[in-house]
Structure formats: C-alpha cells, structure tokens
C-alpha cells in the first residue's frame, strides 16, 4: 500500500483579498496552479522560496482553507494536521494542561490525550517544569513541548512547516532523530522548507513550488539540485 495516493492536488489555486481603504479590495494569488500527489507512507518535501505559497499550500491540504480553483482530493478519510509548535498554547496555564490541549487540537479525544501524556512529558524532557505555567518557559522549552506533542500524537498525515532547530543542540539531535524515524516509518508527511539540505536529509520525493505554480516534481536529489541551481543563478541575476 506504500504507493497508493492519499491526497491529490489538481490545479489548485488560491486567491486572497486584502482590504486597503474603506471598501476597496486588492486580491493577490498565493497559488495559481499546483498539482501533485502525496502517497501513503511517503515523506514528501515541498520546497520554494519565501512567499512561494508553501504555507498556504499546507493550509489547503489541512482543510483549513478551501481552494478557489482546482481540487484537493482525499482518498479514504485520513486525519490531517498541521504541526505548529505553538498550537493553542496558553501562557498562564501549566505545560501539562497545554500538552493535553495541543493533543486535542491535533484531533484526539481527551481520553486519548491523557493516555499518552506521560510519553509526551518524557519526550519533552521538561520533568518537573511541566507543572509550571508556560509563561515561565524559555522559547526552547515551549518548542520542545510542542514538538513532543506532535511526535507522540501524530495523525495519519502530518504537515510540517519548517520547525527543525528546536531547543538546544542535544534536543535538536534528538528531534531530528525522531523526525527521521517518523519519516522512515509508515507515517505520511508533507514537509515544507526553503532549505534544500533538510529536505534532502528527510524526504524521498520533492515538489518545487515557484510563484504559486508547480515547477518540478520528482526524486528529491534531482528537484533540490535544480532548485539550488535556479536559486544561485537567480541570486546572481539580482546582484547584477
């Protein structure tokens, strides 16, 4: 079942309207024409420069936004969640409370969340800090908790928006390892980044989005090389 398509995007476009003065609106196209397939159990990289429409793309896959044109087709009824490290965090409440909240926001019931709470706390390495309100946490600690929740409570499809670089070096190594395990296991993942190197390390297939259009789709090495090649020529042309 490894290569069965799970999510298919067909000529997806997404426009945003922005209000300027009084009743006047300007619209811009975040995505124009994007098509690709996410297969069951694969780790798909999505690369593109800042503003290429990557985050919008993840929101469309997660069902947060609906496309203006084209279709997002789901096969079966997979649970999909966007991994964000600050999910629903309430700074006045304890880390324990926020972990449960975060797990529920990923689509789990309270019972399921509580059942895995110990593992989450263990992974986060927060120990007794877990009972303290989150406003006392360092940003690294917050990110660790968010990451731990996401790793323990992953849905059928995990959408990741460049979040590596969490916490200190030791935790970063641990999270990278956990990510790699996820990526190699049956977990279906769409991983968004503007950096070719991380995508190369984690994903077997990659889609390159440029100006809201699918520029290339294929094996990671080929796509990333073409992307980096394009970037360097593009940067050079900008310098001139």
């Amino acid at each position: 079942m490894r290569s069965a398509p799970l999510i298919r995007l067909k000529n997806v476009g997404c426009r945003f309207k922005v209000r300027h003065k009084m009743m006047r609106f300007k619209s811009y196209e975040a995505l124009k024409d994007v098509s690709f397939t996410l297969n069951r159990g694969e780790a798909l990289g999505i690369i593109g420069r800042n503003g290429a429409g990557k985050s919008t793309l993840l929101k469309l896959i997660a069902g947060i936004l609906l496309p203006d044109s084209g279709q997002v087709l789901l096969h079966g009824n997979p649970s999909i969640a966007l991994l964000t490290l600050q999910l629903g965090f309430s700074s006045e409440l304890s880390g324990r409370y926020n972990a449960v909240l975060g797990a529920m926001l990923l689509g789990y019931t309270k019972k399921e969340a509580l059942a895995r709470l110990d593992k989450i706390i263990e992974f986060s390495e927060l120990a007794q800090w877990i009972e303290e309100p989150m406003k006392t946490y360092s940003s690294g600690m917050k990110a660790r908790l968010g990451f731990a929740v996401a790793m323990e409570m992953s849905p059928d499809v995990l959408l990741i928006d460049e979040v590596l670089g969490v916490g200190d070096a030791a935790f970063r190594a641990k999270s990278m390892k956990a990510m790699k395990e996820k990526f190699q296991a049956e977990q279906t993942i769409a991983f968004v980044s503007h950096a070719g190197s991380t995508v190369k390390e984690l994903c077997n297939r990659t889609v390159w989005i440029e100006n809201g259009v699918t520029k290339m789709e294929g094996p990671t090495d080929e796509v990333v090389d073409a992307y980096e090649e394009y970037l360097s020529t593009h940067d050079r042309s900008l310098e001139k």
């Binding site: 629903g88 309430s90 006045e92 409440l93 409370y97 449960v100 909240l101 529920m104 926001l105 689509g107 789990y108 019931t109 309270k110 019972k111 309100p133």
Partner: peptide, 21 residues
C-alpha cells in the same frame, strides 16, 4: 467527540486563564 471534549477543555482553560492574572 474531539470537538466537544475540546470545547469543555478550552472553556475550562480560558476560565482559569482569565482569573489567573
């Protein structure tokens, strides 16, 4: 089920947050 669990949990969380200040 998740929706209603979340509804109660978030209500409780917000109530706690409101007064904790």
């Amino acid at each position: 089920k998740t929706f209603f669990d979340l509804l109660l949990f978030k209500t409780e969380a917000n109530l706690r947050t409101e007064v904790s200040r």
